[in-house]
Design a protein around this nucleic acid. Structure first.
Length: 729
DNA sequence: GTGGAGAACTTTTTT
DNA sequence: AGTTCTCCAC
C-alpha cells in the first residue's frame, strides 16, 4: 500500500484511525479508495488483526469489492474481518445467539412477498376490512415502527386512540406472533433482534465491543434509527468508529433512513473529527457542473461544492422524444454509434430510470438492435412463482415450523390439499397443541383424513423427513437436485407443455446451477447458508464484469456505481420526480438527490431524455419535462437555448396532476378553464392525436388520477391524462 | 379441490 | 399492461 497516492484530505481520512470520525465524501471523491486504504493501513501499519475490524456496507457487492481491494492492497487474505451488509452481519450474530431471544438457530428470513402473505393472513384473521387498511399500509406502518425500534406494546402506547393505528397495532401484534411461531424474521427483525441480543446480554455485548476495535460504516446517510443503535452498540468499546456518507446522496428516506444520524454525528460521538472530501475524480467538468446546479436547489442542505481537475468534457446530451419507444431507440442508436466511434464495450454504458416499469421498452429496443444488455432488479428471478415454490420446500426442510412455506408447498404439485383441508389440519394441530408440521406427521401415521388427503400428506411428509438430516451434511446443490426430483413438480410442469411451463422448468434447473455456483464461494455449502445468502441477496450483487452487457437499472440500484457513459431516461414530472413525491416538498428534495446520484454516476458522457407522450401502466399520458432538466443551465446542454427556455412554466397549487394541467393550459392557451367542465361527449383536441370525443372520464377535481378516454379517427380508444387536451366544442 | 374467466390492483425506489 | 386475486362452475 502506498499512501502517497492519496490526496491530502484522503490521507487525513486514512491515518486518523483513533476516535470517532465522520468522512463527508462527495460523489466520486474516492470514498471506497479511502475506506480500503484505511483498512489496509490499520492492518499493515497499525498491526491490527483483521478480526478486530468490522466494516459495514450497503450491498453485498460493495462488501465483496471492498474485500478484494483490501486484499490487493495488503497482498494477503483478510480472513477474520467482518465485512458485510447490516443484515448479513446481524444474521451472523443471530445464528449464534438466536436461542437467547426465543428463536431457533435455524430461523428463516421472510422476504417482502412472504411479508405480504403473512400480513394479509393477519388482516383476514382479525376481520379487518382491507379497503382502507391495506396490507401495504399496515406493512409500511409496521416497518416504520420497527425502524424506530417500537414493539407492538410501545407502539400501542404511543398511538392508541387513532382509528387506523389501533388496527395497525393489532395486526403488528399478530404478525409478530406469527413470525415467531414460524421461526422466521423479516428484514427489519434482523436488525432489531441483533440489537435485542446485545441489549439483553451484557457479556455478549462486551465480547463484541472488545472484538471490534475498529468499525467502519459506509453510506452512513442511509442508516435508520435501528441501524444507528446497532452501530453504537458494536463500536462503543473503543469508539474507533469511522462513518462515511454524503447528505446529498441520501435516497432512502422512504425506508426510514434518518438524516439526523449523519447530521448529529458530532453530538452523538463527542470529540468526533470531520473530514470533507470534495475533489471529484470521476466526472467531467460539465457533468459535475450539471450535478452541482441541480443539487443547489435543495434548501435543506449543507452547502458543499464538488470540484474537479478533469477535462471539460462534452456537453450533456439532451433529447426530447416523441414516445417512450422513440426514447428507447434514441438510447440504443446513440449507444451503438458511440461504441463504434470510440471502440468501447457494452459495459461502459448504463441506462438509468426511476421505476422498474420503464425497463420493458428499453429491453425491447436493445433486443431488436442486438445489443447485449443486463437488467438489474425488477421482477427478480427469485420472485418467480416456481422458484418460491421450490424454495418453500427447502425452507421447510431447514425449519419445519414455517407454516407459510408449508401452506405454499404442500399442494405443489397438486395433492388435493387445499385451504379447507389446511384449516382442518390446523384445527387438529391447535387442539393437540402441535405445530402444523407435527400435525401433518401425526396425520400421516394415523390416517386421520380421507384417503386422498392422507396420500397427499404422506407424500409431502415423506419428502421433508427424508431430507431433514441430509440438509446438515450434504452439499446443497445435490440436496436440491434430489428434492426437486422427488417432489414431482417438473413432471407436473412437463404435462402442461406450454411455453410458460417450459420456462418454469428451465428456471428450476437454473436454481440448481445457482446452488452449485454458491458452493464455490461458500464456507459450508450447506442449505442453511444457502437460504441465508439467498434471502439477503440483491440483484446488483450478481452482476459480473466478465459478460459484456449494457446495464439497465433503477437510479437506486446505481448508487455506488460509475460508468463512462450514462443515459438517464424518463425525466418527466410525475415520473421523475415521481408523482407521489410532488405533494410533499421533503420528498421532492429526495428525488433531487436521486437525480444528483444519477448525474454523478457518469464519467465522460451523460445523456438525458424525456418524452412528450408515454404509455405506462396501461395509460397514456403527456408529462411535462422534469424540473430537474430545467435546473441544469442551458449552456451545459447540447440543444439551442431557446428550446430549453421555452420549457419554463410551472404553477404550484392543487395536486400534481392539476399542476401539470395548469402549466399546460398556460402554455397552449387552451380553453379549458376547469377539469370539471369536461363531460362525456365533449369534443376535444389533442395536439398529437388530433380531434376526438370524450368517451369516459375518471376522477374529479383535486384527485390524483384524472384520466380521459377519448376516441379519434386513427385510434379507437386512448387513455390520456387531461393535460394536453383542448375543448373545441 | 381445481381450473378458468374475469375483476381488481398495482407501480418508487431495496436490504 | 401485466400480474395477482376472486369467484364460480364443474
Amino acid at each position: 500500500m502506498n499512501i502517497d497516492l492519496l490526496n491530502d484530505m484522503q490521507k487525513e481520512a486514512v491515518i486518523n484511525t483513533e476516535g470517532p470520525l465522520l468522512i463527508l465524501a462527495g460523489a466520486g471523491s474516492g470514498k471506497t479508495r479511502v475506506l480500503t486504504h484505511r483498512i489496509a493501513y490499520l492492518i499493515e501499519e497499525k498491526e491490527v488483526f483483521p478480526s478486530n475490524i468490522l466494516a459495514i456496507t450497503f450491498t453485498n457487492k460493495a462488501a465483496k469489492e471492498m474485500r478484494i481491494r483490501v486484499e490487493k492492497l495488503i497482498g494477503e487474505a483478510s480472513n477474520g474481518m467482518w465485512m458485510g451488509t447490516f443484515h448479513s452481519i446481524c444474521v451472523k450474530i443471530l445464528r449464534r445467539y438466536a436461542s437467547l431471544i426465543g428463536y431457533e438457530r435455524d430461523f428463516v428470513i421472510y422476504d417482502p412477498t412472504d411479508q405480504k402473505t403473512l400480513a394479509r393472513e393477519c388482516l383476514k384473521e382479525l376481520n379487518i376490512d382491507e379497503k382502507k387498511t391495506t396490507f401495504r399500509y399496515v406493512l409500511g406502518k409496521i416497518s416504520e415502527a420497527k425502524n424506530d425500534m417500537l414493539t407492538p406494546k410501545e407502539y400501542e402506547k404511543l398511538y392508541s386512540g387513532d382509528f387506523y393505528l389501533d388496527k395497525v397495532v393489532k395486526v403488528y401484534e399478530l404478525y409478530q406472533r406469527k413470525l415467531i411461531n414460524n421461526n422466521a424474521m423479516d428484514f427489519d427483525d434482523l436488525i432489531l433482534n441483533a440489537i435485542k441480543v446485545l441489549k439483553e446480554n451484557e457479556k455478549i455485548l462486551s465480547d463484541y465491543q472488545r472484538k471490534f476495535k475498529y468499525v467502519l460504516v459506509d453510506e452512513y446517510q442511509d442508516t435508520n434509527k435501528a441501524q444507528y443503535v446497532l452501530v453504537r452498540y458494536l463500536s462503543m468499546g473503543y469508539v474507533n468508529l469511522c462513518v462515511v456518507g454524503d447528505n446529498d446522496q441520501s435516497i432512502y428516506g422512504w425506508r426510514g433512513a434518518d438524516i439526523r444520524n449523519i447530521r448529529d454525528f458530532e453530538k452523538d460521538f463527542p470529540g468526533a473529527k470531520i473530514i470533507k472530501l470534495e475533489q471529484n475524480y470521476r466526472s467531467s467538468v460539465n457533468i459535475l457542473n450539471a450535478a452541482n446546479n441541480v443539487i443547489k436547489n435543495n434548501i435543506n442542505r449543507k452547502s458543499k461544492k464538488l470540484w474537479t481537475d478533469n477535462d471539460l468534457g462534452e456537453k450533456i446530451h439532451y433529447y426530447k422524444a416523441q414516445s417512450e419507444m422513440d426514447e428507447a431507440y434514441f438510447v440504443v442508436r446513440n449507444l451503438i454509434a458511440d461504441k463504434k466511434r470510440n471502440k468501447r464495450n457494452n459495459l461502459d454504458y448504463a441506462v438509468l430510470y426511476r421505476t422498474n416499469a420503464q425497463s420493458r421498452v428499453l429491453e425491447d429496443a436493445f433486443r431488436r438492435e442486438g445489443v447485449s444488455y443486463k437488467l438489474v432488479g425488477g421482477t427478480k428471478f427469485y420472485d418467480r412463482r416456481e422458484i418460491k415454490d421450490f424454495i418453500s420446500y427447502m425452507r421447510i426442510i431447514q425449519n419445519p415450523v414455517d407454516e407459510l412455506s408449508i401452506k405454499r408447498a404442500i399442494n405443489i404439485p397438486k395433492r388435493g390439499i387445499g385451504p379447507k383441508t389446511i384449516e382442518k389440519i390446523k384445527g387438529f394441530a391447535y387442539e393437540n397443541n402441535l405445530s402444523l408440521y407435527q400435525a401433518l406427521v401425526y396425520a400421516a401415521k394415523k390416517d386421520l383424513f380421507s384417503k386422498k388427503i392422507n396420500k397427499g400428506i404422506k407424500e409431502f411428509v415423506t419428502i421433508i423427513e427424508k431430507y431433514k438430516n441430509d440438509a446438515l451434511e450434504r452439499k446443497v446443490s445435490f440436496l436440491m437436485e434430489d428434492v426437486l426430483n422427488d417432489i414431482g413438480y417438473i413432471e407436473e410442469l412437463k404435462l402442461d407443455n406450454t411455453l410458460e411451463s417450459r420456462s418454469r422448468i428451465e428456471n428450476l434447473r437454473e436454481m440448481i446451477s445457482a446452488a452449485k455456483e454458491f458452493e464455490r464461494t461458500s464456507e459450508t455449502g450447506l442449505l442453511a447458508e444457502f437460504l441465508e445468502e439467498f434471502s439477503l441477496r440483491s440483484d446488483i450483487d450478481n452482476v459480473e464484469e466478465d459478460d459484456d452487457s449494457v446495464l439497465l437499472m433503477t437510479l437506486h440500484s446505481a448508487k455506488g456505481l460509475e460508468f463512462p457513459i450514462v443515459f438517464m431516461v424518463g425525466l418527466e414530472e410525475g415520473i421523475f420526480p415521481s408523482s407521489r413525491s410532488l405533494n410533499e416538498d421533503e420528498s421532492v428534495e429526495e428525488e433531487r438527490r436521486l437525480m444528483y446520484v444519477g448525474i454523478t454516476r457518469a464519467e465522460e458522457k451523460l445523456f438525458i431524455t424525456h418524452s412528450s407522450i408515454r404509455s405506462m401502466y396501461g395509460k397514456t399520458s403527456c408529462n411535462l419535462v422534469s424540473r430537474f432538466i430545467e435546473e441544469i443551465p442551458s449552456e451545459l446542454l447540447d440543444v439551442p437555448k431557446d428550446e430549453v427556455a421555452s420549457r419554463k412554466t410551472r404553477k404550484t397549487s392543487f395536486t400534481s396532476q392539476m399542476k401539470a394541467d395548469l402549466a399546460y393550459k398556460e402554455k397552449s392557451k387552451s380553453k379549458i378553464e376547469d377539469v370539471t367542465v369536461i363531460k362525456t361527449g365533449t369534443k376535444v383536441f389533442h395536439k398529437i392525436f388530433g380531434e376526438g370525443t370524450v368517451v369516459s372520464l375518471k376522477g374529479n377535481k383535486g384527485e390524483e388520477n384524472v384520466t380521459i378516454v377519448f376516441k379519434t379517427k386513427g385510434i379507437k380508444k386512448l387513455k390520456l391524462s387531461i393535460a394536453p387536451l383542448e375543448i373545441i366544442q
